[in-house]
Design a protein around this nucleic acid. Structure first.
Length: 258
DNA sequence: GCATATGTTATGAA
DNA sequence: TTTCATAACATATG
């Protein structure tokens, strides 16, 4: 599930559920999601501290605490859930933060492809330095600069988190469809004007998706059709094409994206 | 058993 | 140096 809009939703969950509250207790149900930190050290460093204002960059969520920062990545199936301590522990609840008598913040993830890191400022910097500008806030000029000189396909380049942080497989397909560019087109050959159009559609798409808290499976969106049997373009009705581009299943309209 | 899945990273080849 | 495909990670579903 998680691309930029989903992670932005998790940031809001963290704000609503945990910001300003003391971490009373941390339970680790599956150590497999902890990276470079033991359950003992996680508890030792964070129990008694408060969650402060969190940040998001691309698909990374930074939960600041006044001490070390908890960095979260959700892989393909992770999410953040705010619940009451009375809720039974879900089989995929990997780490549970209890914030008082009435609230728990739960890192829930089926596949455990990513997880949680506990980092000092140098550690967070090490991760963020490998990320391109955030796709939701990048300006036109920086967007052009990020794409300039790239020889890969638009699909590959836009999904590369070190070029631009936050877009995933579905969003890239959606944005390319709206802009009318085929996924295999080389990113480096876009004119300044083409770049600006792509940038505008990206920002528009992200705004709508962030408002919805996810990439909406609406049938006016390409994303809403990709899993249909015999999928057709929501705009022109042409049968959609499906192929592997840059290693991921890619869907596009051959008529709208020539 | 097989293929698929919204993510990232290491590896080897071109 | 850049780019690409591939496998790996762990788990579920059709």
């Amino acid at each position: 599930m998680p691309e930029l809009p989903d992670v932005e939703g998790f940031r809001r969950t963290l704000v609503g559920c945990a910001r300003g509250r003391v971490i009373r207790r941390i339970e680790v149900y599956d150590e497999g999601v902890l990276h470079g930190v033991s359950p003992q050290r996680l508890r030792g460093e964070l129990e008694g501290r408060r969650f402060t204002e969190p940040e998001r960059h691309g698909k990374w969520l930074l939960a600041h605490t006044g001490g070390p920062t908890l960095m979260l990545h959700f892989g393909m199936t992770g999410r953040l859930v705010c619940s009451s301590p009375d809720e039974p522990v879900h089989p995929h609840d990997r780490v549970v933060f209890t914030l008082g008598r009435e609230r728990q913040l739960r890192y829930r993830d089926q596949r455990k492809l990513q997880g949680l890191w506990l980092l000092d400022p140098a550690g967070t910097e090490r991760i963020l330095s490998r990320q391109g500008p955030d796709a939701g806030t990048v300006g036109r000029a920086d967007f052009r600069a990020a794409l300039a000189g790239r020889r890969g396909s638009l699909k590959a380049v836009l999904m590369d988190q070190s070029v631009l942080a936050g877009l995933g497989n579905l969003l890239v397909d959606e944005i390319l469809w709206r802009t009318g560019f085929p996924p295999g087109r080389p990113a480096g050959d876009l004119s300044a004007d083409d770049c600006d159009r792509l940038h505008a559609e990206m920002r528009r798409t992200l705004r709508a998706a962030v408002r919805a808290g996810c990439v909406p499976p609406r049938d006016t969106w390409l994303t809403g059709r990709r899993d249909d049997p015999g999928p057709a373009c929501p705009r022109c009705g042409t049968p959609l094409r499906r192929a592997r581009v840059a290693g991921r299943t890619t869907v596009w309209c051959p008529r709208c994206q020539p």
